[in-house]
Computed example of a mutant assay.
Amino acid sequence: MRLLLTILGILLFASSSFAQKFGYVDTEFITSKMPEYAKAQQQIDQNTKTWLAEVEKKKQELEKLEKEFKLEELLLTEDLKQQRLSAIQAKGKEAKAFENQVFGAEGELFKLKQTAYKSILDQISKAIEKVVRAKRLDFIFDKANDGLVLLYTNPVHDYSDYVLEELGLELDPNLVEKTKKEEAQEQKSPKKN
């Protein structure tokens, strides 16, 4: 009976020592407590309001030109009509270009957010690294996003190079040497049945 309990204890200890530890954080909650984030958000909101006002002003100017054209269309010669229409089109393109420049995928708003949040995200990342080391975690997820986002992974659990090897793609030369040494050791050691 004692032997059975000893073996069971060893098995439980061995299985728990190989277990991976997971954790999660809520970045929305964390950033809501950071004064730097509130300040950055306020700056972004102010710039966004200014840019929206400029976009609205350009749209109103375009609408004014279109209304004036409709009122005077019957009185204009064909050349003047074409001139006004091209001026309206140019104003429309200008308004659209400004809107894309500010609110587009790589626009001013995107750049402003990137620079404003960079130091905050760096602080959070460093804090996560410290917590991971202190708590000996292997994975950290962020529950604030729609789907769970992986914020940290222990590189020990990255098997990308092995998948590349299986696919026959180029590997890191250091890993190739390590793999060859492991395979050579496996062949030298006697197999247990």
Rank of each mutant, 00 (worst) to 15 (best):
residue 76 L to R: 01
residue 58 K to S: 12
residue 61 E to F: 00
residue 22 F to L: 10
residue 14 A to H: 06
residue 12 L to V: 05
residue 55 V to C: 13
residue 29 F to V: 09
residue 52 L to D: 15
residue 31 T to R: 08
residue 74 L to N: 15
residue 77 T to C: 09
residue 48 T to V: 05
residue 36 E to V: 06
residue 10 I to H: 04
residue 62 L to N: 12
residue 37 Y to T: 03
residue 9 G to L: 11
residue 72 E to A: 14
residue 24 Y to T: 11
residue 64 K to M: 09
residue 41 Q to C: 02
residue 31 T to M: 12
residue 46 Q to S: 15
residue 40 A to I: 00
residue 67 K to T: 06
residue 71 L to I: 05
residue 68 E to L: 06
residue 53 A to K: 12
residue 33 K to H: 01
residue 74 L to G: 14
residue 13 F to V: 07
residue 32 S to L: 00
residue 71 L to G: 14
residue 67 K to F: 07
residue 77 T to Q: 00
residue 47 N to V: 13
residue 40 A to M: 00
residue 33 K to T: 00
residue 66 E to I: 06
residue 57 K to T: 11
residue 14 A to Y: 00
residue 79 D to K: 15
residue 11 L to D: 06
residue 41 Q to I: 03
residue 51 W to C: 06
residue 12 L to H: 05
residue 12 L to R: 01
residue 17 S to D: 06
residue 47 N to I: 11
residue 48 T to K: 10
residue 50 T to G: 14
residue 70 K to S: 13
residue 16 S to L: 06
residue 43 Q to T: 05
residue 35 P to R: 06
residue 36 E to W: 07
residue 45 D to K: 01
residue 36 E to N: 10
residue 15 S to W: 06
residue 79 D to H: 09
residue 60 Q to A: 14
residue 44 I to M: 05
residue 42 Q to T: 12
residue 61 E to Q: 04
residue 11 L to V: 11
residue 79 D to M: 04
residue 20 Q to N: 02
residue 73 E to N: 00
residue 40 A to S: 09
residue 72 E to W: 04
residue 71 L to P: 08
residue 32 S to T: 03
residue 62 L to G: 09
residue 7 I to D: 05
residue 9 G to C: 09
residue 11 L to N: 03
residue 57 K to P: 09
residue 38 A to W: 07
residue 54 E to T: 04
residue 33 K to R: 01
residue 69 F to M: 12
residue 63 E to K: 11
residue 79 D to W: 09
residue 60 Q to R: 10
residue 15 S to N: 01
residue 36 E to T: 05
residue 55 V to W: 00
residue 77 T to F: 00
residue 79 D to Y: 08
residue 32 S to Q: 10
residue 14 A to K: 03
residue 26 D to P: 00
residue 61 E to D: 15
residue 68 E to A: 10
residue 59 K to Y: 03
residue 17 S to P: 06
residue 41 Q to D: 11
residue 7 I to L: 02
residue 23 G to C: 04
residue 75 L to C: 08
residue 41 Q to L: 09
